[in-house]
Design a protein around this nucleic acid. Structure first.
Lengths: 165, 165
DNA sequence: TCTAATTGCGCAATCA
DNA sequence: ATGATTGCGCAATTAG
């Protein structure tokens, strides 16, 4: 989770063991990386779509031969490149997504704060409004009256803030 | 799409040659047509002496030998399992993150809508306030304004919106 | 059909 | 020593 720099040294054991440098011909196709070490043919149960055939050996040989082909190597190399690219993108995307989450979170907080503020403002204003209304109702004619809380037009709904948050 | 019926085929590299071999204890290097697997004793030419470093044959053999080791296979298998697990998690996490983004987006929209509403409410109330203020200022004692009669008392703002949460 | 992009998988190095 | 990660190459599949 916190380290991501490791791709130079690569194999320490080039004793020839896992170093399967498939590179009959020109090598040096890979400047930055220490070229390959590893693996070989992975056989996969090539699913028999067409009726469960048992992989004709004939074709296999052809495949084998193909490995030596220059063309084969080229294809492999292209693919390796593509794979690398694809993975890079994928990783980048994931990273971006994560960042988006963070941004959205922040935005959310801001919005909620704003809501809180507005709610409060609204509440205050409403109260003020009610107060005035009462005053007016109380002294429709009377000149002055102490701050008596007149309930004349108390038709308000449960009144004050209902800010439940 | 997913065929995970791959037997435990493993490639064993020997002296520059990769031999794919099945791995049931007593290795039969050539289980012809087993479950439709095309497992050919592939010999992949490992980059030989060509541009290699001195390849101490001594150690190599040791490593090679290790491949046949039962213990080695066990380690590999464990690792493969771990890798699989790790990748699964990784993928899951990415997926979750993506979903989180969606959720947050929705939440954001909701919040913004709420803000809009509150703002409007506030605006209305303020206007009302101003209006009254003007009235008061204009006529110290206006004769029952013809305008909205119950303006003040009728403060039951239909905006009883109480976002349920 | 061919190529590029994806995806699943195993290996080995490294981290923890 | 062991499980978890990660870069990498191979091969099968999927798009275009």
């Amino acid at each position: 989770m916190s380290k991501q720099l490791q791709q130079k040294i690569t194999n320490t054991i080039q004793n020839g063991v896992s170093v399967i440098q498939n590179r009959p011909h020109n090598s040096a196709v890979n400047p930055t990386s220490t070229a390959g070490l590893q693996q070989v043919p992975q056989l996969v149960p090539v699913s028999p779509a067409g009726g469960g055939k048992a992989t004709p050996p004939s074709k296999m040989k052809k495949n084998m031969a193909e490995k030596d082909s220059e063309e084969y190597r080229q294809r492999r190399e292209r693919n390796n490149l593509a794979v690398k690219k694809s993975r890079m993108r994928s990783k980048q995307k994931a990273q971006d997504t994560q960042q988006r989450v963070n941004e959205l979170k922040e935005e959310n907080e801001r919005l909620e704060a704003k809501i809180k503020l507005l709610s409060k403002e609204l509440s205050v204003l409403k109260d003020l409004f009610l107060e005035h209304a009462h005053n007016l109702a109380d002294n429709v004619q009377p000149p002055a009256s102490a701050g008596g809380p007149g309930d004349l037009c108390n038709n308000n709904n449960g009144s004050n803030n209902n800010s439940s948050q």
